[in-house]
Design a protein around this nucleic acid. Sequence first.
DNA 1: ATTTTTCGTTCACATAGGTTAAGAACGTAT
DNA 2: ATACGTTCTTAACCTATGTGAACGAAAAAT
Lengths: 195, 195
Amino acid sequence: MHNNIRKNIEAKLNQRLTAAEFEKLSGWFVPIQLENKVQFVNENQISRNLYFVDSGATHTFIIDKKGELHTVQFGFEGYWIGDMYSFFSGKPAIFNVETLEPTTLFAMNYVDFEKACKQITKFEMFFRILVQNGYLNSLQRIASTFSEDAEQRYLSLIKKQPDLLQRVPQYLVASYLGIKPQSLSRIRQKLVKKK
Amino acid sequence: MHNNIRKNIEAKLNQRLTAAEFEKLSGWFVPIQLENKVQFVNENQISRNLYFVDSGATHTFIIDKKGELHTVQFGFEGYWIGDMYSFFSGKPAIFNVETLEPTTLFAMNYVDFEKACKQITKFEMFFRILVQNGYLNSLQRIASTFSEDAEQRYLSLIKKQPDLLQRVPQYLVASYLGIKPQSLSRIRQKLVKKK
DNA sequence: ATTTTTCGTTCACATAGGTTAAGAACGTAT
DNA sequence: ATACGTTCTTAACCTATGTGAACGAAAAAT
């Protein structure tokens, strides 16, 4: 049941978990089944869970002062998601997370997370790597936002995740790229003509 | 000598270090004095150091394909800087870091960092908090880039760091905001007239 | 099956920010 | 004091993206 988590951790660590370690971890990850369009993390509400996406898709987003939605990140099979700020500080979340398909998650609460870090050094290492990678990715995303135009960002994105447009509505892809749906439509039209 | 580091760690942890812990840590942080305009982390070169800015100022930046500079972050007294990617992976850095004033740093190398994490749990906790905060800040910066125009971002920035323009050249502030120096000049002129 | 809502496209027009270029202000070296 | 390089400003023009609106297609609800 928890095999995808195991594979994911072992791949990032480049190291295997023992049967005992895996068994302990499994106990701390509770499966959750959600329908499409279910929001399970809410801005301004406390969310002391860390989630692993076993199957399905999610998006993490904020709503700005003008009421506009901005996608911070998508989450597919094998992604770790949630509101880290709330998870660690115990204060209300700053992001929202919602499913984009029927989705199976594994959730670990903060108390178990602390146990896991203490009892299983490999998990603590794994998690450190996870946060570091997330941090670096977001720094590079800032850099690319400033150095590339929307067309280039779009091309990089579909190169990196060719199935993205098949799985999430185009207006959310636009919100991830930092542009309006109409602009993404225009960019796509221009690219078709170029060929 | 290492008092600023101590204060910084204790403040973030909200917990004091014992004399023994502090003494150990002090031994691992090597002071470095640099002149203005010294680049001490280079893209494509390995940099397995973590730096604490004791006094002075730095900026972390990338150069894009068009040869243009983009500031990723500034570092002043009490900031922790360096190229985390290289620090952890041992691979070449993806960022550059340079002084903007005569600067005093404390450097910790990766081997000592690992010792510190193992021997001083508080340091390990502290560092985890540091990376998490960095990650969250960068996610929020992405959100603000998409939801605010350059004028609003400029106003938020000088509100948060009123002395920034006194300490770093305006073209670097522009590169941090993601605009050209001419555009920042135009925005500033417009703001003066508004008053 | 029909209606209603959501989503993607297209277009005309508006605007923020980029580009180029020139000159002013300032700092530093001579 | 003079000259040189660097930074900042200003202005005219250009371009990518935003805005608002209309339409058709697809999806969801009835």
